[in-house]
């Protein structure tokens, strides 16, 4: 990176965009006070260097620590902070972010920088080559995985096997928190997607397959970031439950667009309304 790149960051961090962003980056955040600012810094330094208009969206998920105050205190003009009064799950936070995103390309990236933002370039290349969705993958050939615990490896392999068997997805790693979408694909998928917790990625990829979207799996560098809040065992159990739920939803026609009542505009309206009570029209049909 050059001083010119640093100048681009300083411009981004001091001047509001005068045009619609080309790129939207969404960080879902739940109690990320210890990590969120360095992550924002790394993302801002890299994406600003493209010299394209871009926006950063931090979708807080009801954090009870200082996450919101820290992000707000940065006073970055092109950072949109979405607040939530209560914790609703990573899937819900990302969905709220997507509903506000204005870019032609939308990336969501975990707050721990476990997949470095530099991997953006490889995913974007796939989108530019015609993919609707590009997913970071820790298991695709060429991936570089560091510090992944033994138990996490075991769960990952087991779940990957289950995903291939039950949903027949053409992706070996559904859960990497680094995924990119065209704006159209994001609007489409997130209008149908209803799972709020960690399995939402799985549902997105199932929906992408169901709709015949082009999905590219991109090997990435990945580090098991210290301080992960993910309980592998708990997530694995939820994951298996949600695998069955997705199959059931599909069988009942929940994901058929003609039966679906949600639109991106509708998501926007109820996500920004008072969270009490939380209307989930699709869940009511399950």
């Amino acid at each position: 990176m050059t001083s010119a790149s640093l100048d681009l960051y300083h411009k981004w961090s001091s001047e509001p965009l005068r045009q619609r962003p080309k790129i939207s980056v969404i960080i879902p955040a739940y109690n990320e006070a210890i990590r969120i600012v360095p992550t924002i810094g790394a993302i801002a330094a890299h994406v600003s260097s493209f010299d394209e208009p871009w926006e950063l969206i931090v979708a807080d998920d009801g954090s009870t620590d200082d996450t919101v105050d820290l992000v707000e205190g940065l006073e970055l003009p092109n950072l949109l902070l979405l607040r939530a009064k209560q914790n609703g799950g990573k899937g819900k936070a990302v969905r709220r972010g997507v509903s506000e995103a204005r870019g032609d390309i939308i990336l969501f990236a975990d707050a721990d920088q476990s997949t470095p933002i530099e991997q953006f370039d490889d995913l974007e290349q796939q989108i530019c080559a015609g993919a609707d969705v590009a997913v970071g993958s820790r298991s695709a050939s060429g991936a570089d995985v560091k510090n992944k615990s033994f138990m996490r490896n075991v769960f990952s392999k087991g779940l990957s096997f289950a995903v291939r068997g039950l949903l027949r997805l053409p992706v070996t790693d559904t859960q990497c928190g680094f995924k990119m979408f065209t704006a159209d694909a994001a609007a489409n998928l997130f209008s149908l997607q209803i799972i709020d917790d960690f399995s939402f990625d799985l549902e997105l990829l199932f929906l992408a397959k169901k709709q015949g979207l082009r999905v590219a799996e991109v090997p990435v560098s990945w580090t098991d970031a210290p301080g992960s809040k993910v309980s592998a065992g708990k997530v694995a159990l939820e994951f298996v439950r949600d695998l069955a739920l997705i199959r059931l939803n599909n069988w009942r026609g929940v994901y058929d667009q003609e039966n679906h009542t949600l639109s991106p505009q509708r998501i926007r309206s109820w996500e920004t309304a008072s969270p009490e009570p939380n209307p989930e029209p699709s869940r009511a049909t399950i």
Binding site: V37, I40, A45, S49
Partner: peptide
């Protein structure tokens, strides 16, 4: 400093 590190130091 690399740019990411410089930006992180500035933000913090």
């Amino acid at each position: 400093l690399s740019n990411p590190v410089r930006v992180i130091l500035e933000l913090t």
